[in-house]
C-alpha cells in the first residue's frame, strides 16, 4: 500500500500540485485520471522520488520515502517498476539486453538463469522472436510491452505506469491494460496508472483518483464514476454529448429517478444520440 499526504509541488511560481492525499491499494489498479497538464505525471514522479515535493509525505508500507536514508531509498527503488510514457527503452541495447539490464545490475545470477527469466517475462507480455531487435525496430505497442517486461523483471511490489496507452490504437491499448491488470492481480502488485483514456478507466479502474488542476477532485471506483454527480468529473469523463446522454440514461436506469429537465430539453437529444425511444416518464420504451 502506498499513501500520499498533502503533496505539494511548484515549478518557479507555477503551482502544479496543491496538496493531494490518497491511498493506493495492493493488488489493485489504482488510476490517476485528469486532463492533460493537470499534474498527473508530476504527481507520479513525486511518488517515485524523481521530483522532490515541496511538501507532504509518500508512505511506502508506512515509511516516508523522503524521510529515510539513501540506502533505504535504494531498497525501495528496487521494489519499484515503472513504465514510462515514451517507453524509455535504452536505444543502444536490444530488447533482450533491455529486459536483462536490471538483472545484470542487481543480481549475481548466472547468465543462463538471467536469460531464462528474461524469456519468461517477455513471454508474459507476449513478445516472442524479438530478442535481438533494437527498440527502433519495433512498434510502439511492442515497445510498451518490452518496457513493461523490464519493469516487472525484478518482481516489483509497486508498479507505476505513466499513460500506458498514449499513442496506441484502442485495441492495442486494451491489450496493454489487460496485461497490466493480470500482472497486478497475479503478483499482488500495488499498481498506479496515469491515464486520460476512458476505456482504461472503465476496464481497469479499481480505485480512481481524479485530479483537476492540481487538486484531488474526486475519488472512487469505476462503478461509482458512472453515477457520480461531480460536475467537473462528468465534464471530463463524458466529454461528448453522446456519452453525456448515455450517462443520463444509465442514471435513470439505475436510480429510477428522472433528472430535472430531462423530459423537455434532453429528451430529443437522448433519443437521437442513443437511437432509442423514451416513454413519457423517461424510461426506455419498446423500440
Amino acid at each position: 500500500m502506498i499513501e500520499i499526504k498533502n503533496i505539494k509541488k511548484s515549478f518557479g511560481n507555477k503551482t502544479v500540485l496543491k496538496g493531494i492525499d490518497s491511498v493506493f491499494f495492493d493488488g489493485k489498479c489504482n488510476l490517476i485520471i485528469g486532463a492533460s497538464g493537470s499534474g498527473k505525471t508530476v504527481l507520479i514522479k513525486c511518488m517515485v522520488g524523481l521530483f522532490q515535493p515541496d511538501n507532504g509525505e509518500v508512505l511506502y508500507a508506512g515509511k516516508n520515502f523522503f524521510d529515510i536514508s539513501n540506502v533505504q531509498k535504494k531498497n525501495i527503488r528496487k521494489e519499484i517498476g515503472m513504465l514510462f510514457q515514451g517507453s524509455a527503452l535504452f536505444d543502444s541495447l536490444t530488447v533482450e539486453q533491455n529486459v536483462m539490464f536490471p538483472l545484470e545490475m542487481f543480481t549475481n545470477d548466472k547468465y543462463s538463469i538471467k536469460r531464462k527469466r528474461v524469456n519468461e517475462v517477455l513471454a508474459r507480455v507476449n513478445i516472442v522472436d524479438a530478442n535481438k531487435k533494437y527498440p527502433a525496430e519495433i512498434s510502439g505497442g511492442m515497445k510498451k510491452r518490452v518496457a513493461l517486461a523490464r519493469a516487472i523483471v525484478l518482481n516489483p511490489k509497486y508498479l507505476f505506469c505513466d499513460e500506458p496507452n498514449s499513442g496506441l490504437d484502442p485495441q492495442t491499448s486494451l491489450v496493454i491494460d489487460k496485461l497490466i491488470r493480470e500482472i497486478t492481480t497475479e503478483f499482488n502488485i500495488t499498481t498506479v496508472i496515469n491515464t486520460h483514456d476512458m476505456n482504461s478507466v472503465m476496464e481497469i479502474g479499481d480505485n480512481i483518483l481524479y485530479v483537476f488542476q492540481g487538486e484531488k477532485e474526486w475519488e472512487g471506483t469505476n462503478k461509482d464514476i458512472i453515477l457520480s454527480k461531480n460536475e467537473k468529473l462528468n465534464d471530463f469523463i463524458f466529454a461528448s454529448a453522446f456519452l453525456k446522454d448515455a450517462k443520463t440514461m444509465r442514471t435513470i436506469q439505475e436510480t429510477g429517478v428522472i433528472p430535472e429537465g430531462i423530459k423537455e430539453e434532453l429528451r430529443d437529444s437522448i433519443e437521437e444520440n442513443l437511437n432509442i425511444d423514451l416513454d413519457k416518464d423517461g424510461f426506455i420504451g419498446k423500440n
Partner: peptide, 17 residues
C-alpha cells in the same frame, strides 16, 4: 540529452542507479 528527453535517465534512477 537524448537519454534525458526520452526518460531513459529517469528509468535508470527509478531502478536505483
Amino acid at each position: 540529452g537524448n537519454m534525458r528527453v526520452s526518460e531513459q535517465i529517469d528509468a535508470l534512477e527509478i531502478m536505483g542507479i
